[in-house]
Design a protein around this nucleic acid. Structure first.
Lengths: 187, 187
DNA sequence: GCAAAACTTTACCGATCAGTACACATTAAC
DNA sequence: GTTAATGTGTACTGATCGGTAAAGTTTTGC
């Protein structure tokens, strides 16, 4: 039960869940995709739910690492970073394999508020809310909690719209909106 | 094969799909819930997909009817109606059975862009985008397409956030953001 | 080298999946 | 009243669901 083997399984499962959904992806399919036997899979993860939770943890780590780093590369000051967030999102939307936000989808497929998967999806969003609120505070916004939440609303809305309406450019419109909100919060 | 019987089946299926999801809801469960036999169910709907599409059509009709009417009740001028949209959303979020947006969930479970269910979910969002754009135009916004899209982003973001983060009040923050954006678009 | 632990495969479990064959019941036409 | 069309319930199909028992193979510690 080498730990790197487990990581490899989680990585592959993440890909398949992201592309095909949670309920629609059976353990048999994952077994075929990973090339491992079913028994081995269940040695590493006691249930499918445990595997999904592990995949979500990895996704949270990957996405936040990428996003925060990318935003830092794109801008220096907190105010500029708030706006640059939407440039980073725009890059993500244009990636080949873009299929929306894994945590929105997880929350949609596991809707009971107490469900561990739903809870973990909520934690991801809460972490991003804190990130935005922190930037808003450092930028000197009058009400950083409100501005942080509004930036989050724009981000989530942009993701959903990027998935469902290919015709418009949500990252651009969201960035323009964020600029207006930011200016108003600093004035 | 009375047509009203079919409507009743769609209505019930809509409830179950909304509460439990699409893949997670089997036809057997729907048969039990509706009290009709499986054969009858498949006389009305040739496949599960056809039933889902019918449920989504009903949901689109119900939601748009309710939303547009409620907004009209809450405000008179187009500008005020844009803002009142978020009061209507807030009422929806506080309803007992609130489980998020059925079309976001449908788009999340059926991700292939050409899939009929995905297409139908996208059409719902497009209709709402047109509604907001229309209001923005009537309100005299400088760039009604951009403002309409931004209002839509706030709405979708508010829905997602209402599902995943119970602690904050997305309808309030979204309305405040919409007011700032509206003022900026009219100035 | 030897034994225990770790890991694997094969074959299977009962439950449920979407969908159907077929016989039985009901209605309507005349 | 008979016939034909329509609707219904029972019982089933093969496939797949999440998960497991048991036996074989490889690795590890000493």
């Amino acid at each position: 039960m080498r730990p790197n083997k487990r990581d490899e399984l989680v990585r592959k499962a993440l890909q398949v869940f992201y592309k095909s959904g949670f309920h629609a992806t059976g353990m048999d399919k994952l077994v075929v995709e990973t090339g491992v036997s079913k028994t081995s899979m269940y040695k590493h993860f006691r249930t499918k739910e445990e595997l999904i939770l592990a995949a979500l943890r990895l996704r949270d780590e990957n996405f936040r690492n990428w996003f925060l780093r990318r935003v830092q590369e794109l801008a220096d000051t907190p105010a500029e970073q708030l706006l640059a967030s939407f440039d980073a999102l725009g890059e993500w939307f244009n990636e080949d394999g873009f299929r929306g936000c894994m945590f929105i989808k997880a929350g949609a497929e596991f809707q009971e508020k107490e469900h561990p998967i739903h809870v973990q999806a909520a934690e991801h969003k809460r972490a991003l809310l804190e990130y935005f609120t922190d930037l808003a505070r450092k930028a000197g916004a009058r009400n950083p909690e409100a501005l942080g939440c509004q930036i989050l609303l724009l981000k989530e809305g942009a993701i959903v719209t990027a998935v469902l309406l290919k015709s418009c450019d949500p990252a651009r419109d969201a960035k323009a909106a964020a600029r207006v909100l930011l200016d108003a919060a600093l004035a």
